[in-house]
Amino acid sequence: MFKRLMMVALLVIAPLSAATAADQTNPYKLMDEAAQKTFDRLKNEQPQIRANPDYLRTIVDQELLPYVQVKYAGALVLGQYYKSATPAQREAYFAAFREYLKQAYGQALAMYHGQTYQIAPEQPLGDKTIVPIRVTIIDPNGRPPVRLDFQWRKNSQTGNWQAYDMIAEGVSMITTKQNEWGTLLRTKGIDGLTAQLKSISQQKITLEEKK
C-alpha cells in the first residue's frame, strides 16, 4: 500500500525546468507551479508516452532531478554507511541512485490517469530550513484521497528550496528505503546496493492501464 502511495505522490513532485522555475526561495510556489507544469506535460505528451513509456525517463531527467536534492536524499538512505564509504564508492552510488530515480519516478508518472491535487495554504517560513507541505491527491475514479507531506529543505548556501522526502501515513519514503535496503547494505555494503540500483534502473517502464 505504501509503495502505491509513494508512486501516486511522485506525480506531483516533478519540479519546473530552470527556464520557467518559480521563486526558488518559496517552496509553496515551487510546489504549486511544479504540480501544474507536471500535470500539463503528462496530459499533453501522452502520444509520446504511450508510444514509448521510457520517454518518461527524459521527462524526469529534464523536469524533476535538477530540483530534487538527489545527493542529500541518497546520503540519508545510506545512513551510517555513508561515512564509511570511499569517495569513489559515493560517486558510483550517487550515479546509480540518480539512474534509479529516473526509472522509479518514471514508473510513478506512468500512473497518471487524470488525477488532480490540492496544496495546503502557504504558511510563514520564518527562519525554518525544513518545511512540510501537505498535498491532497484526488483520484477521478473514486479512490479515497491521498494526503501527503512533502519535505522541502532550504539550501544554506543559495537560499533555494528543494524537495527531498515524502511522508505518507506517518511513514517517510527515506525511512522506507532504509528499511528495504538495510539488509543488503549490511551483507554486501554500498557496492552491493550500487549494483542492485544499476540493475533496477535497467527495467523498462510500463504503463498502468486505467481501472
Rank of each mutant, 00 (worst) to 15 (best):
M1A: 00
M1N: 00
M1T: 01
M1S: 00
F2P: 00
F2L: 13
K3V: 02
R4G: 03
R4C: 12
R4M: 15
L5S: 02
L5W: 03
L5G: 01
M6R: 01
M7C: 04
M7F: 07
M7L: 08
M7N: 01
V8R: 01
V8G: 05
V8K: 02
A9R: 00
L10G: 01
L10A: 07
L10Q: 00
V12T: 06
I13S: 04
I13L: 13
A14P: 09
A14W: 13
A14E: 05
A14R: 03
A14D: 04
P15N: 10
P15R: 10
P15S: 14
L16A: 11
L16D: 04
S17K: 13
S17Q: 14
S17V: 13
A18Q: 13
A19C: 04
A22N: 09
A22S: 11
A22F: 09
A22Q: 15
D23R: 10
D23G: 11
D23K: 05
Q24L: 11
N26G: 08
N26E: 09
P27S: 06
P27N: 02
P27W: 01
P27V: 10
Y28L: 04
Y28S: 11
K29C: 12
L30F: 05
L30R: 14
M31G: 02
M31Q: 06
M31K: 01
E33W: 04
A34N: 05
Q36P: 15
Q36D: 06
K37I: 08
K37E: 06
T38E: 04
D40W: 05
R41P: 02
L42D: 01
L42H: 02
L42W: 02
K43D: 11
K43E: 07
K43C: 06
N44I: 11
N44M: 13
E45T: 07
E45M: 06
Q46A: 06
Q46F: 09
Q46Y: 13
P47E: 10
P47T: 13
P47V: 10
P47M: 09
Q48W: 12
Q48R: 10
Q48T: 11
Q48G: 12
Q48C: 05
I49M: 09
I49R: 04
A51E: 13
A51I: 13
N52Y: 10
N52Q: 11
N52A: 10
P53C: 06
P53V: 07
P53T: 12
D54E: 11
Y55S: 11
Y55R: 13
L56E: 08
L56D: 03
L56T: 07
R57H: 15
R57L: 15
R57K: 13
R57F: 15
T58Q: 05
T58N: 05
T58D: 09
I59T: 06
I59F: 03
I59D: 01
V60P: 01
D61F: 02
D61H: 06
Q62Y: 06
Q62N: 12
Q62G: 09
Q62K: 12
L65Q: 11
Y67E: 07
Y67Q: 03
Y67M: 10
V68N: 15
A73H: 03
G74I: 00
A75Y: 00
A75F: 00
A75P: 00
V77S: 08
V77L: 05
V77P: 13
V77F: 09
V77K: 00
L78I: 03
L78D: 00
L78A: 03
G79W: 00
G79V: 01
G79P: 00
G79R: 02
Y81T: 08
Y81Q: 12
Y81C: 04
Y81F: 12
Y81V: 15
Y81S: 07
Y82V: 02
K83S: 10
K83F: 02
A85F: 03
A85L: 05
T86F: 05
T86H: 09
T86M: 07
P87C: 08
P87V: 08
P87I: 09
A88F: 09
A88Q: 12
A88M: 11
Q89L: 05
Q89H: 05
Q89C: 04
R90N: 04
R90K: 14
R90P: 01
E91A: 12
A92N: 08
Y93G: 02
Y93N: 04
Y93S: 03
F94D: 01
F94C: 07
F94Q: 06
A95M: 09
A95W: 07
A96S: 11
A96V: 14
F97E: 05
F97A: 05
R98G: 13
E99G: 10
Y100K: 02
L101Q: 15
L101G: 11
L101K: 04
K102P: 12
K102I: 10
K102D: 09
Q103H: 10
Q103E: 10
Q103A: 11
Q103S: 14
Q103N: 15
Q103F: 13
A104Y: 04
A104V: 09
A104W: 15
G106T: 08
G106C: 13
G106A: 13
Q107Y: 14
A108L: 06
A108E: 04
L109Y: 05
L109F: 15
M111I: 14
M111N: 04
Y112E: 03
Y112S: 06
G114R: 06
Q115T: 03
Q115K: 03
T116M: 15
T116Q: 15
T116D: 15
Q118R: 13
Q118V: 12
I119G: 09
I119D: 14
I119T: 13
A120Q: 11
A120D: 06
P121E: 06
P121Q: 08
E122R: 10
E122C: 12
Q123N: 10
P124F: 13
P124V: 11
P124Y: 06
L125V: 09
L125R: 11
L125G: 07
K128W: 10
K128N: 07
K128I: 11
T129W: 10
T129Y: 09
T129C: 07
T129D: 06
T129S: 12
I130R: 01
I130W: 02
V131M: 13
P132M: 14
P132R: 04
P132N: 11
P132D: 07
I133W: 02
I133A: 07
R134L: 03
V135W: 09
T136P: 03
T136G: 13
T136K: 15
I137Y: 14
I137E: 02
I138R: 08
D139M: 15
P140S: 12
P140Q: 13
P140L: 14
N141E: 05
N141T: 12
N141P: 11
N141A: 08
G142N: 07
R143E: 01
R143Q: 04
P144E: 03
P144D: 03
P144Q: 07
P145D: 07
P145W: 11
V146I: 06
V146Y: 04
V146H: 04
V146P: 07
V146F: 09
R147K: 06
L148F: 08
F150Y: 14
Q151S: 08
Q151D: 08
W152T: 06
W152M: 04
W152Y: 08
K154W: 02
N155M: 00
N155C: 01
N155R: 01
Q157I: 11
Q157K: 11
Q157H: 08
T158I: 05
G159V: 08
G159R: 08
W161H: 04
W161S: 02
W161Q: 01
Q162N: 04
A163L: 15
Y164Q: 06
M166D: 03
M166Y: 01
M166I: 09
I167G: 07
I167L: 07
I167Y: 02
A168G: 08
A168N: 00
E169F: 00
G170Q: 01
G170F: 02
G170D: 02
G170R: 01
V171Y: 03
V171R: 00
S172K: 02
I174G: 10
T175A: 06
T175F: 04
T175K: 03
T176N: 03
T176W: 02
T176V: 06
T176Q: 00
K177G: 14
Q178D: 03
Q178L: 01
Q178V: 02
Q178G: 07
N179C: 05
E180R: 01
G182P: 15
T183R: 11
T183K: 14
L184H: 04
L185N: 09
R186G: 01
R186H: 04
T187K: 12
T187S: 11
T187H: 08
K188D: 06
G189T: 06
G189R: 07
G189S: 09
G189L: 02
G189F: 02
D191Q: 09
D191G: 08
G192S: 12
G192K: 10
L193D: 01
L197V: 13
L197H: 04
L197Y: 11
K198V: 11
S199M: 15
I200P: 14
I200V: 11
I200N: 08
I200A: 07
S201I: 09
S201M: 09
S201P: 14
Q203L: 13
K204M: 11
K204G: 13
I205Y: 15
I205H: 05
T206I: 06
T206C: 09
L207E: 14
L207R: 12
L207H: 13
E208V: 14
E208Y: 09
E208M: 13
E208K: 07
E209A: 14
E209V: 13
K210Q: 14
K210Y: 13
K211L: 08
K211M: 10
